[in-house]
Design a protein around this nucleic acid. Sequence first.
DNA 1: TTGTTGTTCCAACAAACGATGGAATCGATA
DNA 2: TATCGATTCCATCGTTTGTTGGAACAACAA
Lengths: 216, 216
Amino acid sequence: MVTPLEKARKDPDSMKAKILSKARRIFGQYGFHGATTRMIAEEVGIDISTLYYHWGEKSDLYEAVVLDINEDLRQKLKEVDVEIQGHPAYKRLEMSLDMMTDYLFEHPEISNLILLRYFGKTRDESVLDFPVPELVSDIARSMGFYKENQVIPDNIRMRVLALMNSIHNFVSGEDFFSSMLGLDRPSYIAMVKETLKFVLLPAFTGKMPNGKPVKK
Amino acid sequence: MVTPLEKARKDPDSMKAKILSKARRIFGQYGFHGATTRMIAEEVGIDISTLYYHWGEKSDLYEAVVLDINEDLRQKLKEVDVEIQGHPAYKRLEMSLDMMTDYLFEHPEISNLILLRYFGKTRDESVLDFPVPELVSDIARSMGFYKENQVIPDNIRMRVLALMNSIHNFVSGEDFFSSMLGLDRPSYIAMVKETLKFVLLPAFTGKMPNGKPVKK
DNA sequence: TTGTTGTTCCAACAAACGATGGAATCGATA
DNA sequence: TATCGATTCCATCGTTTGTTGGAACAACAA
């Protein structure tokens, strides 16, 4: 059996896919309760009942959105994993940071939704949580923090979470931070990359962003 | 003239203060739209109209909550700043991390609300933003990242943001992350501290958490 | 006593929200 | 053409949410 989400992902021009795309953005910006079905329908340019026809309840649509971005993220991580093969650890992390930052700035609703799921609660606790553990394991192995096919200890998992969240924070907080610093988009993105490297490279690779070892 | 917030902060046993206290928790957990005035009133054990009598509109109460936690945070930062005087840079950062982590785990709604303000939008954009820039400058000076009474450049501000947000993330995401790792509260908090030191100390101080310089 | 002031609750309102039934429309098929 | 399924919109429903008016009550001053 084929789920509505699979249908939508297969045919990006379908009404299901259009609704899903707008729903991603609006749920990401306003959260589950802040977003209304009317807002989403209006954004697509359709009646609310059409939205309900395709996706059923609001929470069902939300669930589809979560699974959708999770699939996107997983796919992107695979791409990155292929791209960085063969480089030394230092270069691998640096490349990953650049690529993931660029990708997430193109799809900021991914970061928004992930952070909202971490930090915010929903009134009705029906909603599912997406498989963060798998993502974390993938990243840990891809970065070479831990060897293949082994159970990854908690402290390594925590470090990966810290790494991921640092990116999500800057992507998701773009409006707030860039206006606070008075930066335009390209300058802000460049500064995010610089900051991420400054903070993360020494801890995870033992080298400063300029490639020199950390001074004593 | 004395504002309702000042009244509430002066008399913690007053009804205004009781409402404010519960409002902090509920706004922090559910966000502005997710929280309802009825939820807050019920938590306090009063009628909704009593809540409106003391704080007026929902957005006014929310504004008071934001200013309240901002004041708490500012006060705590001052305490930390006094405590760490005289220590070397490495020790200052380590102490600050420990103290701020403990404090925020005691008042997680502070981290919740700050992150929700960064990342989430409100349907009516009336709401004010609280003075993050000042906080960031205070921290930058307190940590010795930059000298007193100078305009702090953007890249330093960004590093401070990265530092602050790393703590907020782990505090605010406690439920999600600790259940994901299967840790109880004390273990989780200990692991958060360890992780924060692992990630942040090398970049900001050039030393590993064990005090040794970062290896080449 | 009477009045005043501050506080609390009951009841209710209008608007917004999630959700649905049913009619209308369109395209393909027989 | 007639029929059928899929899709879209209009109108509407019940509930929740933000908000308010007014009565009840207590404490205190005149």
